[in-house]
Design a protein around this nucleic acid. Structure first.
Lengths: 241, 241
DNA sequence: GCTGCATATATGTATGATAAATGCGCGTCT
DNA sequence: AGACGCGCATTTATCATACATATATGCAGC
């Protein structure tokens, strides 16, 4: 039974190749194989292989031309904001540097999203934020999962912004948080931002306090950033172990 | 000769289907056709059609299951930050609202990128910014293209940030600017931000003035935002004509 | 040394056959 | 009557193969 990776065979090949590519498995010394070679190596027909390669092309990882072959695109052309690409990177080529760069994105976006949420959030959106806060409180008492409730909180705010682009960050922030927790957790019991700090953000949004929402979310992000910067300077040696 | 759309047949089908999808051509009343039907309609073989569909799947626009068929995903699952998707939207389903939401992203990201650039930019990155400034000055005198030189300026700063995610915004900002110019230009002679305002940003970056870079870029973005908000409120009727 | 044609090799396209997944309806058993 | 399960039909998924097209490379001719 091939279908063990979640969906279908093509999807599995996509994951495997995607992960291999982002980890730098193919380069000058080991160029990306030809169609026929990959088929043999992966035990796949040309159809599935080509479809997987096309998907990777669509994500900016590969490019192909007749006679010249298929090659891995330079990293600056990868669609880093594609959920799959970011997940592969985070899971297979995690580095504190990568997480730091990503958090710089969150540092810019999330305060703005909170401000927009304070301005536009409708009843349903606020209810979702409130619900996430409940989960965080429960998690604080050990009655819910801290990671997923934290994700739910940030996602709820992004969606409450009423801006489709901010809402789109949902998947990539989820991917990043889900893997980055490893780093911060590894450093003995460093606690993430407190429930109270999250509550401040929520309250500002509920009260329509635009600047308050922006600033309290900014504070939250700076907390995370500080932790990551410390880890980036501290775990280089540990990572090698 | 089929190869008139830039690359190959598959690529052309990808563009066409992508544009059709984002404009809402397929919905409840007109579900996405089956493989065989599309092949006939587009005069394409199953290979190219399936590969194009896979690429659209990779961008979050489509999803397929045996017996159930292929369908257009709800809009919140589209990868709006994929350059292709954004371009299709901007070119084929342009709206002031969409541009406004996108500019809210720029409003958050670009000041941060400028701040990072003021902090990290190396000699080469600064040279590129300087070069873009020269182009803008030339454009102001009618000796260069205003649009592409403006794009070059913003892209140079994004790349100077030293953050891969910010650098990745290059393509989507280019796509947005290239099409959005229509809107602002349509309103008789509204001028874009002045060369002097851009120069302020550049100078702050050259001088390592982090907060200055952030603030001057923020001012630049607010200028653009104001124009777009005005257009969003003003051109609704015009657009209908 | 240059031009241009032949050729080899990679991807691109076309097509037929078969497998697998799954909604739906029919029939059966209780 | 109702619940259960079996088989059928439909659509994508996969496989195999043939042929087309683009293009880097090298040889031939000047």
């Amino acid at each position: 039974m091939r279908n063990s990776l979640g969906r279908n065979f093509t999807f599995g090949i996509l994951q495997q190749l995607g992960q291999e590519i982002v980890t730098g498995a193919y380069g000058r010394s080991n160029p990306f194989p030809t169609e026929a070679e990959l088929c043999k190596r992966l035990g796949a027909s040309r159809s599935v292989l080509r479809e997987a390669v096309k998907m990777l092309t669509a994500k900016g990882l590969l490019r192909a031309r007749p006679r010249q072959g298929t090659w891995v695109e330079p990293e600056e052309n990868w669609n880093l904001l594609d959920p799959d690409v970011l997940r592969w990177l985070m899971e297979r080529k995690f580095s504190a540097q990568l997480l730091l760069e990503f958090t710089q994105i969150r540092l810019a976006m999330e305060p703005m999203a909170a401000a927009l949420a304070a301005r536009h959030a409708d009843v349903a959106a606020k209810a979702k934020i409130r619900q996430a806060m409940e989960r965080m409180k429960a998690a604080d008492k050990g009655e819910d999962d801290p990671l997923t409730s934290d994700i739910a909180f940030h996602v709820a705010i992004l969606e409450a912004s009423g801006n489709r682009f901010y809402a789109q960050l949902r998947d990539i922030i989820e991917a990043a948080l889900r893997t980055s927790i490893q780093l911060t957790n590894r450093r003995k019991g460093v606690r993430l931002a407190s429930v109270a700090d999250h509550q401040k953000v929520a309250d500002a949004i509920f009260g329509g306090d635009i600047e308050g929402a922006r600033q309290s979310m900014h504070a939250l992000m700076m907390e995370a950033m500080t932790l990551i910067e410390a880890a980036a300077n501290g775990t280089a040696a540990e990572d090698a172990v």
